[in-house]
Design a protein around this nucleic acid. Structure first.
Length: 833
RNA sequence: GCCGGAGUGGCGGAACUGGCAGACGCGUUGGACUCAAAAUCCAAUGGUGCUUAGCAUCAUGAGGGUUCGACCCCCUCCUCCGGCACCA
């Protein structure tokens, strides 16, 4: 009898799989496909068990689906551009590519060591020109369609390094390298992708995702797009001919309660308004103070409301009233029109502002029910809908109706119009960094911005570049790169030196997997049509918004380019929980990392995989416990011993396949074994198929092992072909979870050729079925006895049996039975007085 | 503040459609095997009370409700986690 030696058998089977090409998947219209994807990892160096959880869940599903006969596409790749490689280069003087590739090699080795069933032929690394070439290609297509454009935008600037900082390089408002140097906001020209062109599509198409995506992700995305319907209304400025302030409001019905108009400090009209007003010098000084504070948006959210009166008035276009114009810090410049009407009675922020600056409060909406609001008793704004009052001819209308009518009237009179605004902003993709995809345009002295022609792609990132982290954009210091000729006029041109946000790389990578080596297109249409949409995507919740909204946006653009037929790339999304140690997420900086290689070394990867699936339901956070994983190691040893114990005797035996088992001729022990095995199979199948409760699947399999163990010795009272079948079922159920050990035990049981061609067993309802049921007897809902009844007992018979139980009769003495509830095969509840 | 999610033994967690709360694992305790240890195996293990082989009773964050019956459905509240946060 041989010992369970995980290291030996894991290496052995990994070799077999490699030689067989066991996990290669090719387009095969004759078979149903299943595209299973885990989020592309960033090659940061070593993998810890937090990373592995994601892949373990995916691999269990991939292996299960293969056993169910699906043609499973299960690929992986590397999100290999990005800042850490640059930082490592600065720190250790290693070229980013070298650092990145050595990390990839290391992580790939770990993945192979865990036996993940990837089709490695489809491996993609985003920092390779063969890949990023297509980022550039997509960019050019967007440029052609006006979906890529340039505008000025703020970046973080460290005056000491004289360089742009990524958000991650800003620590508490200071440069990461100069902790005392305040980061400044600097306006520079940058490239944007017009994701806002798809705002409504991103919202509307969520209907397709409702079934398969977690609700919280959809909610987050909906809030991120932030659609709100309202109206734009013009307030003409008094004594300034032709000047008006436009405000955006969702509550035009409260306009008769507007007691001020408030502009953002950055509103372009402010200087004009202040100019020529008595005391304008002092006002301007205050305004400048307000404007300075704008620079720090994190604090702004918590800051107290502050404002100044400009000295000017605007005319309320509905009431004709003169309304003071203020400038205040709480009005956002880049949302709506950058100006609001201030209705203290019906907006909480306006209420607070009005209280501080003693602006009048005017109630123009009363609740439909309950006591009427009184001005002097208002402690907070009344923001609900109700009925308009003191609103001229609109008085008496309910809010929704008033909004509709007033919007229409505003439009008719040319003083406003209905408008929908979004919080979603266009996607700024320019990064003043080296390790990323070069943006494929040149700036020609004569022709201006000129796209690099397709046949000159990729614009390759130069490889030997001195990275210091100081000075201008790294690529700007590489003359061979910067100096270009204009594709149009062949004159002198300067190449764009910014690179793309790495979220571009990860926005479409899963299409590339379907056709990873295509050098004529990002992917072939046929390949995408066969494999898409992704049947199951698995990843961390931290990508709920950015990655998952950008990739939806890309798919919509690709759809409009005619590259794909679907609108949504991902049918189902699963967000797994984090792995924690000591109550905190595993990370290098917390110093609580449990290394994947270390676990594979110590226990074997099957044990690590099993513990990962068993310790918590997959969507919940998992606290890593050394004792917990030891428990799993014990269990696998136990299974190994169990199978080994009978292997010798059973090897030559032809197992009786489940389909042919005849229950009538079975012994008592065989019935118990078969019943438990098929009950387990039924529930594990359901867990893997629909519920994804891998933790309870593992628990069920443990129960099965306990039952088999209780029935030992198996060679007494059970025929070998039945005993063998039960052990086979055990091994097959373990296959998605602990694939190496399952292969080994399958072989031990006398099978050759591996599990690759073996299907998931079908459970038989009649074998799983209990012959007897324990019926619980309750009196007034309290447990008072139990009854063992045969299958097929009628309701009346069950009731009779319960009532004639001695203990029950005893307890019922002196009580009148009001009624009896019988749930067949489950319980009898006798209600007495 | 708003929006989501969660709260069950000493711990991780189970309980499928409203029907025996605590499956399975960890830990703990006792025992077997052993010169001894490890490994393995066996048994016990929510609290309280009692006339203690058993029985009763309480118990799923708190309080209430619906129901013959509630971890599960409804209402109110508390705590924790996550997201958004002056979005007009």
């Amino acid at each position: 009898m041989s010992e369970y030696e995980p290291q030996r058998i894991e290496a052995k089977w990994q070799n077999v799989w490699r030689e067989q090409g066991a996990f290669r998947a090719d387009r095969d219209p004759a078979r149903p496909k299943y595209y299973l994807l885990e989020m592309l990892p960033y090659p940061s160096g070593t993998l810890h068990m937090g990373h592995m959880r994601n892949y373990t869940i995916g691999d269990a599903v991939a292996r299960y689906k293969r056993m169910r006969g699906f043609n499973v596409l299960h690929p992986i790749g590397w999100d290999s551009f990005g800042l850490p490689a640059e930082n490592a280069a600065i720190k250790n003087n290693i070229p980013p590519r070298q650092w990145t590739n050595s990390n990839i090699a290391q992580m790939k080795a770990t993945c192979e060591r865990f036996g993940f069933s990837y089709d490695w032929r489809r491996e993609v690394s985003t920092c390779e020109p063969e890949y990023y070439r297509w980022n550039q290609w997509f960019f050019l297509r967007m440029l052609e369609r006006g979906l890529a454009y340039r505008k000025k935008s703020k970046v973080n600037w460290c005056p000491q390094c004289q360089t742009v900082l990524a958000n991650e390089q800003v620590v508490d408002g200071c440069c990461w390298r100069h902790e005392t140097t305040q980061v400044e906001a600097k306006d520079i020209e940058q490239w944007f992708l017009r994701i806002t062109a798809y705002s409504d599509a991103l919202l509307d198409d969520m209907k397709e995702l409702g079934e398969g995506w977690p609700e919280r992700v959809l909610v987050m995305q909906r809030n991120w797009v932030g659609k709100s319907k309202g109206a734009r209304v013009k307030f003409p400025v008094a004594k300034m001919e032709g000047k008006a302030i436009e405000v955006f409001t969702t509550r035009i019905d409260t306009i008769y309660g507007a007691t001020a108009v408030i502009l953002s400090p950055e509103h372009p009209l402010v200087p004009e308004l202040i100019h020529g007003i008595p005391g304008s010098g002092a006002i301007e000084a205050q305004w400048n103070r307000l404007r300075q504070k704008i620079l720090r948006p994190a604090e702004l959210a918590k800051a107290e409301k502050e404002g100044i009166f400009t000295g000017r008035f605007a005319v309320n276009p509905f009431s004709g009233e003169m309304t003071p114009i203020w400038v205040a810090n709480f009005v956002l410049a880049d949302y709506g029109t950058g100006a609001v009407m201030c209705v203290p009675a019906h907006d909480q922020r306006d209420f607070e502002f009005a209280e501080k600056y003693r602006l009048p409060i005017k109630i123009v909406v009363q609740p439909l029910q309950g006591a009427a609001l009184k001005k002097d008793q208002l402690n907070e704004a009344y923001t609900d809908y109700g009925r308009a009052v003191d609103s001229a001819k609109y008085s008496g209308l309910e809010s929704a109706k008033a909004i509709e009518k007033m919007t229409a009237d505003a439009e008719a009179k040319g003083i406003g119009k209905g408008e929908t605004t979004y919080r979603l902003k266009d996607w700024g993709i320019s990064r003043q960094r080296y390790w990323g995809t070069p943006i494929p345009v040149v700036y020609c002295e004569k022709c201006g911005i000129v796209p690099v022609p397709d046949d000159e792609l990729p614009v390759k990132l130069p490889e030997s570049v001195a990275l210091t982290g100081e000075g201008q954009s790294p690529l700007a210091g590489v003359p061979e790169f910067v100096n270009a000729s204009c594709p149009k006029c062949k004159g002198r041109a300067r190449r764009e030196t910014d690179t793309m946000d790495t979220f571009v790389d990860s926005s479409w990578y899963f299409y590339r997997y379907t056709d990873a080596h295509n050098d004529r297109a990002p992917f072939g249409a046929e390949e995408a049509r066969y494999w898409f949409p992704i049947d199951q995507y698995i990843g961390g919740i931290e990508h709920a918004i950015l990655h998952l909204i950008y990739s939806r946006f890309f798919a919509k653009v690709m759809h409009d380019l005619g590259l794909i037929e679907h609108r949504e790339p991902v049918k189902r999304l699963f967000s797994q929980g984090m792995v924690q140690k000591g109550g905190r997420a595993m990370s290098k900086s917390h110093g609580n990392v449990v290394g994947a290689d270390e676990m594979a070394q110590k226990y074997g990867c099957d044990t690590a995989r099993m513990y990962t699936l068993f310790a918590a339901p997959p969507e919940k956070d998992l606290e890593w416990s050394e004792q917990g994983i030891e428990g799993c190691a014990r269990f696998l040893n136990k299974v190994h011993r169990l199978v080994e114990r009978y292997a010798e005797k059973l090897r030559g035996v032809e197992a009786n396949p489940s389909a042919k088992i005849d229950l009538a001729s079975a012994t008592a022990k065989e019935k118990v074994l078969l019943r438990k095995a098929h009950q387990t199979l039924k529930r594990v199948t359901n867990d893997l198929e629909a519920r994804w409760h891998f933790n309870s699947s593992v628990a069920l399999i443990m129960e099965l092992v306990n039952e088999i163990h209780a029935q030992e010795p198996l060679d007494e009272g059970a025929r070998p072909e039945i005993a063998k079948r039960v052990l086979e079922l055990l091994v097959l159920m373990l296959a998605p979870i602990v694939p190496h050990m399952s292969e080994e035990l399958w072989e031990t049981l006398g099978h050759s050729g591996g599990l690759g061609k073996v299907s998931w067993p079908a459970y038989r309802e009649d074998l799983a079925k209990e012959e007897q049921f324990e019926v619980v007897i309750q009196i007034n809902g309290r447990l008072r006895g139990k009854l063992l009844v045969d299958d097929g007992l009628t309701e009346d018979e069950t009731r009779e049996r319960a009532l004639s139980e001695p203990r029950v009769t005893q307890l019922l003495k002196g009580h009148a039975i009001l009624k009896t509830i019988v749930v067949p095969k489950k319980l009898v509840n006798i209600v007495v007085r």
